[in-house]
Design a protein around this nucleic acid. Structure first.
Lengths: 217, 217
DNA sequence: AGAAAAATGGACCAGCAAGTCCACTCTGTG
DNA sequence: CACAGAGTGGACTTGCTGGTCCATTTTTCT
C-alpha cells in the first residue's frame, strides 16, 4: 500500500483525510466535494488523485476507516474496562454525553449509506467496527459473569448483540430527532435488566431501583 | 397548495411519487435523478416541476411522507393489537421477517439523511413517524399492564422508548451488515425482559431461552 | 552536484443533472 | 363551440463536479 511515501507525502495524505472528514461532518455527503476538501486541506487536485488514484470513493473509504477507529476510541478507556456495574454506568454516561454533543451527524452512517452500494469495502469497514464494538461489550459481560454478578447460563453474545442494537438505535433516533431520551432509555433498561438478572433475590416486580417517577394514574 | 388538481392531474402526481419511491429504493439517493423518475413515471420535466414547483427536495419530501406511512402500515394489524404476549410474539415475527426481506435499504433513513440539513420538513416527518410508532408500543405495553401481565409501577413510556430504539438499532445493523441477528436479539431480549417483569415467581436466574426458542435459524 | 523519483499547481475537459421556458394539447364548462 | 386554464412535451441553459494532463518544483539518494 503505502510504499514510497515521503514524510511530507504522508503528512499531506493525512491532511487530506482529516480535511475530508471535517468537511463531511460539517456539510454532509452531498456537500462534500473534492474542491471543498482541496480548500480545507490546502492541496491541489493533482495531489488528491496522487494519493487516491481511484478518486472520491477511495478517499471516502479512507475517511470511513478513520472515523470507524474514532468511534471506539472516544469510548475508551471505559469501553475496555467494563468489569463492574460502576464501570458500566461510567461508560454509559460517557457514551451518552458524547453522542449528545456530536448531535447531528454520524459520518459512519453517512458514508455507509453513500458507499454502501458502490464500494464493497465500505460495508466491510462497518461490519468490522460493529464486530469489535460488540466484542468489547461481550468481554465486559463475561467479566461480570466471571465475577459472579451474572448467572452462568447467560447467553453473552446475544446480550451483547442486543446491547449494541440498543446503542445503535438510540444514536439513530438521537440523530434524527435531536433528543437523547431514547438512547438513555435503551441503555438504562438494557443494563438494568442485565443487572436484575444478577440479583434474583431483590425486588422482582416494581423495582424502581432507578430514578423513575412511579405514580401514574 | 394542491387546490386545482384534476383527476388526471392527481393521478400523474401520484405516479410521480410512486416512481420516485421505486427509484429511490432501487438506486439509493445518489442514483435518484429527476430523469430517472421521469422515465419510470413516463412524465416530462415540465410535469415534475408543475406538481413540485420547488423541485427535487419537495418531491423527495413527499416521498418521505409516503414511505413513513408505509412503515407502520406493513406492521399492521399486529402493531395495533399488542394486547397479549402471543400478539407481541406475532408482531415480532412479522416485523423481523419484513425487514429481513427488505434487506438492503431503508428509504426513510436515506431521505432523512439527505434532506436532514436542507429541508426542515424531513425531520418533522421522521419525528412524527417515530412518535406514532412508539405510541403503538406504549399502548401495547399498557394493555399488558392493565391485563395484569405487568407490574403497575412500570414506566411504560421508558419501556416503549427503549423498545423503539431496539428496533431501530436492529434494523440499522441489519441494513449495514445484511444479518438480522441483532434485530432478533434486541427484540427477543427486550420483550423477554419485559415478560420477566410480569412473572416474578418464575425462574429468575439462568433461563436465557424462555420462549424465544423458535425462529432462531 | 545531479539525476531520478516524488510532490505539487492548476488549467482543462466531459458529463450530468437541476431547473427554465415556451409552445402545444387536452378537458371541462358556459 | 369557444376559450380559459390545467396538463404535457422537450429543447435549452446553467452550474458544478469528478477526473485528466502536463508542466514545474521539491526531495531523496548516490
Amino acid at each position: 500500500m503505502a510504499k514510497e511515501l515521503t514524510a511530507k507525502g504522508k503528512a499531506t495524505r493525512g491532511r487530506i483525510i482529516d480535511a475530508a472528514a471535517e468537511v463531511l461532518r460539517e456539510s454532509g455527503i452531498e456537500g462534500t466535494t473534492l474542491e471543498g476538501v482541496m480548500a480545507r486541506s490546502r492541496t491541489s487536485k493533482s495531489q488528491l488523485f496522487h494519493y487516491f488514484p481511484d478518486g472520491k470513493d477511495q478517499l471516502l473509504l479512507a475517511v470511513a476507516q478513520y472515523e470507524a477507529d474514532q468511534v471506539l476510541d472516544v469510548q475508551q478507556p471505559y469501553l475496555g474496562r467494563l468489569d463492574s456495574w460502576e464501570a458500566w454506568q461510567q461508560w454509559r454516561d460517557v457514551t451518552v454525553r458524547h453522542y449528545e454533543e456530536q448531535g447531528d451527524h454520524c459520518p459512519i452512517g453517512t458514508l455507509s449509506l453513500y458507499l454502501g452500494r458502490s464500494t464493497p469495502g465500505a460495508r466491510a469497514v462497518v461490519i468490522e467496527l460493529l464486530h469489535r464494538w460488540q466484542e468489547y461489550l461481550a468481554v465486559g459481560i463475561r467479566a461480570l459473569r466471571t465475577a459472579g454478578h451474572l448467572p452462568a447460563g447467560l447467553d453473552v453474545d446475544e446480550r451483547a448483540a442486543a446491547l449494541l442494537a440498543a446503542i445503535q438505535g438510540g444514536v439513530t433516533i438521537l440523530q434524527a430527532t435531536g433528543r437523547a431520551d431514547h438512547l438513555r432509555a435503551a441503555l438504562d433498561l438494557a443494563i438494568g435488566d442485565l443487572r436484575r438478572l444478577g440479583e434474583p433475590a431483590s425486588a422482582p416486580a416494581p423495582a424502581p431501583g432507578e430514578d423513575r417517577a412511579r405514580a401514574r394514574g
